[in-house]
Nucleic acid binder design. Structure first.
Lengths: 248, 248
DNA sequence: ATAGCTATGTGTCAAAAGTACACTTTGCGA
DNA sequence: TCGCAAAGTGTACTTTTGACACATAGCTAT
């Protein structure tokens, strides 16, 4: 019978979520705003997150948090990884803030990060216990975040970039019907570089991932775009046949 | 001041490692062998792992475990993810075994999985507290593992497959010098499919990832192969220039 | 009504990459 | 010296990528 080692870790575990949204122009992330309590007197931002409950699966915890923040269910949600540096909560500002909010601010907390893709049209702001004030911040305007959240965000973004090259998950950020430019702009926003318009269209159409609807934009001061929708069957066929790269 | 929620989780956290090795013929995984205590009387296998200590970073914990098992340091090690299903330790056989080994077998344990790539020539079996008996099992001979370890293994393998298409990490599984067939066979073993010999060679040489040494195999009953080694500078140049796919 | 604006929508050509495929070579061993 | 077994090599064809420019549709302002 092995003795219990008193140096074994017995931490709290939280789930933090990078929630991506797309406003047809740029990629945004839902962040919680926090007033700094030290001399800087400024605001700082953090990823939404919460401690995980007993009997709660990690994925379920992330779904719950996501739902409490956005009112949404059945949302694309993917694990980024676990972050457990013993000093991850030890920046001075973070410690002050934790002290004001938790009974045991010095406890070690390991976090399991997720990222999720939501359609901004479906989003309804919610009052949430763990996020008094939230806002959608454009990716390129995000400053240094609290805790190790900048690290989490950049890893989540990298995962999203890698993934979107392999699977057309971007559709989760768009409404049912969308124009080709919206889709195009979405890919450019995620990948952070320009993509040739014609080549992009050619590829999407060859893979038959989108299909045209008999409907056009109205009231736009230029040639109206046809609307398109995502073709899920063709996507599934691609996955089954071992398709593995978009090659943009 | 927020009240502490008594339903918040306070689990143990472990690190489990999928250790891959390559014997020039097939991909193998280092597993620990465990005697079953129930009626089945058989043996079953699990991934090596251990609880994480206080003040220990997740990556450090995985390195420690890896070192205790293999005697190796500075080994390629990558996180697979966190696995925290509340029932992940609740198969009957697993519960019996846990009871015999731990004081609080019912405690919830969240595990952070890693995979690592080791050169079998460097491996020296170690006596370890958490693994009385270990063996290298060929990937295709691995039966159902204990706990949720089969799930962890398959996710680790998938990550390895994805990664090796993007970065030449396979060299970690080989000695300094190796033949082209060994490298070729390694890629086939990881990807689980045949690769054309000539096309494979052409690609590796075009990317200048390997360079020829002035040395040949000796004592083999056929035309001896030249030895090659990995060219790290060219690899780094590739990464910097944004190279992102091998396209096998 | 018409001229101008703005984003949509479309095709071609050249370069690169991928795929399929078979025979000669080298050194050992019988 | 003959046979064996794996090493090593080239070509032809197909597919994919990447670069690039102009006509079109509907709205708006005059």
């Amino acid at each position: 019978m092995q003795q219990k080692n008193k140096h074994e870790l017995n931490p709290r575990v939280s789930a933090d979520i990078v929630i991506f949204g797309f406003d047809f122009n740029q990629l945004k992330v839902l962040l919680i705003e926090r007033e700094n309590l030290d001399a800087t007197e400024g605001m700082s931002q953090a990823l939404p997150g919460d401690l995980i409950y007993e009997n709660e699966d990690l994925y379920m915890a992330a779904s719950r948090i996501l739902n409490e923040l956005t009112g949404l269910n059945n949302i694309y949600l993917e694990q980024v990884g676990a972050f457990g540096d013993p000093n991850r909560l030890n920046k001075e500002q973070d410690k002050l803030w934790l002290k004001s909010v938790r009974q045991q601010p010095d406890e070690r907390v390991i976090t399991v990060a997720y990222y999720s893709l939501v359609n901004l049209n479906d989003y309804v702001p919610q009052a949430s216990s763990f996020a008094k004030s939230t806002s959608w911040i454009p990716l390129n305007e995000i400053a240094e975040l609290a805790f190790d959240h900048s690290k989490i965000l950049s890893k989540a973004l990298q995962k999203l970039k890698d993934k979107i090259m392999m699977q057309p998950i971007g559709f989760n950020l768009l409404p049912e019907k969308f124009t080709f430019s919206q889709l195009h702009k979405l890919y450019e926003s995620i990948l952070g570089r320009e993509l040739d318009k014609r080549n992009f269209r050619r590829k999407m159409l060859k893979l038959k991932l989108v299909e045209s609807l008999d409907e056009k934009q109205e009231g736009v001061p230029h040639k109206p775009s046809r609307y398109f929708k995502f073709n899920e069957e063709n996507y599934n066929r691609l996955i089954e046949n071992g398709y593995d790269n978009f090659g943009f």
